[in-house]
Simulated scan of single mutants.
Amino acid sequence: MNAEAIDLLIRTELPAAARGDRDAYGRIVGACQNAVTAVALAITRDVPASEDIAQDAFLAAWQNLKRLQNPSSFLPWLRQITRNLARDHLRANRHRPLDGEGAEIAISLAADPSPTPAQQLVQDEREQAAAELIAALPEDSREVLLLYYREGQSSQQVATLLGLSDAAVRKRLSRARQGLRDDLLRRFGEFARSSAPTAAFTTIISAALAAASPPAAAKGIFAVAAAGGANTLGKVALGAAGSIGLALVAAFAGMWLGLRKQLKGAIDDEERAALIRSSVINALASIAFVACMLLVAVAARGTVMLVATIAAWLGFMAVIFYQTLVVQPRAMRRRHTLEAQRDPVAAARRRRRERIHCWIGGIVGFVSGCAGVVLGLNAAGVL
């Protein structure tokens, strides 16, 4: 199946798969299994482990399909899930590489077509040799070279499946070829093709899909775990708590520093109380916004997530701007009047400088926040 056909198949079958059609998703698995197993194998250098990881990645993606609104994001999303699971596997199963084995010996063992009676021993040797061979390749060329031989030596096909340009694929292939002799490269091609998943791989996943839950938005927090590489709810909760904590600390630090500066010049308790009240409102708005974003991330998806995020962001910014541009200047009006009576020129200069700083800070904060919201929605597959 060529690159255009794979892209068309994903776009055609993905909506049905997201509605729970296991057969549609099975067809997607069959089209993408070479790419996914190649990504896992390039990282783990272990053929059986790469197939296990690929199966887990396909199942994780299946259960969270409803969170992916843009079909063109499917392959990048699936590749990232696979990479995260493969890295988790390496952290959990650290193996030392072979000692004293050159690439030529390793590739000969990995690609040796004649089995010996001691099948288990040979299998272990081939797996170790394959790991050594892949490790000898440039890191950024491993996925490319494996997939190149599995996909009929089409650089364009590899480019589509890995989200690269054709020029980038050709460059990485060239680097890999420079590091291997022709006969070793030929044997590596045999190894790549012989280790590719067969039709049985798709059958295994199809059977697993029959027992797995269909795509559901209620699994939102687990979708974050799958996409980010976390494998327990505790890790997700801890990550969320850390993000919220950092956001609140940054917000409160900025508010406290601004409040301290304002309180230094307060002329009486009435002004001081008004300024403190305004800062407390800003702090509560920050807490409410972060809590709202966490709720949206867990419970919403698609258009609902987009609308809820924009509404929460605009509401938050409206509170901050109103307190900063209306309430706080009103609270300090009497102070500004006294300053203007003592030195009109200096007071006017100070007010002008304060307005400039306020607008610059507001614009920078608003633009930065909008950029963060857009990036977050894009990462979630909403945009």
Results as ranks from 00 to 15, higher is better:
145 L>A: 14
154 S>N: 13
184 L>Q: 09
340 A>R: 14
80 Q>G: 05
157 Q>T: 04
381 G>Y: 03
220 G>L: 13
109 L>E: 11
177 R>Y: 04
195 S>R: 07
342 R>V: 13
192 A>E: 06
286 S>M: 11
136 A>L: 01
11 R>Q: 13
200 A>Q: 05
25 Y>Q: 00
298 V>F: 15
262 Q>D: 15
20 G>L: 03
28 I>R: 07
233 L>P: 08
71 P>L: 05
19 R>Q: 10
232 T>G: 01
307 V>M: 04
77 W>I: 01
237 A>W: 06
376 G>I: 10
45 R>C: 10
173 L>Q: 01
273 A>E: 12
71 P>R: 02
375 L>M: 12
115 P>N: 05
44 T>W: 00
46 D>K: 01
198 T>Y: 11
5 A>H: 13
142 R>A: 09
31 A>D: 11
117 P>A: 13
30 G>K: 10
84 N>Y: 03
200 A>C: 02
7 D>N: 03
96 R>Q: 13
249 V>M: 03
196 A>K: 02
280 V>Y: 01
164 L>R: 09
304 V>I: 09
85 L>P: 00
149 Y>G: 09
362 G>Q: 10
257 L>S: 12
269 D>W: 11
84 N>W: 01
241 A>C: 03
4 E>W: 03
302 G>L: 02
341 Q>H: 02
332 M>L: 14
46 D>F: 03
98 L>T: 09
184 L>M: 06
112 D>R: 03
331 A>L: 05
15 P>S: 06
154 S>F: 04
1 M>C: 07
367 V>L: 12
313 W>M: 12
297 A>Y: 02
35 A>Q: 09
331 A>M: 06
360 I>T: 12
11 R>V: 12
228 G>Y: 00
236 V>I: 01
180 L>R: 04
179 G>W: 02
333 R>Q: 15
104 E>Q: 05
24 A>S: 14
197 P>Y: 09
196 A>R: 04
256 W>V: 13
39 V>Q: 09
254 G>M: 05
268 D>M: 05
95 H>K: 10
22 R>V: 06
42 A>E: 09
26 G>R: 09
13 E>L: 10
285 A>I: 01
275 L>R: 09
320 I>T: 06
314 L>D: 03
22 R>P: 06
225 A>L: 01
157 Q>C: 06
27 R>T: 00
172 R>M: 11
56 D>I: 00
256 W>Q: 15
211 A>H: 03
217 A>H: 01
382 V>R: 00
182 D>Y: 05
138 P>R: 06
354 E>A: 13
280 V>P: 07
378 N>G: 15
239 G>P: 05
62 W>L: 04
197 P>V: 04
237 A>R: 11
88 D>E: 14
282 N>Y: 02
227 A>F: 13
142 R>N: 04
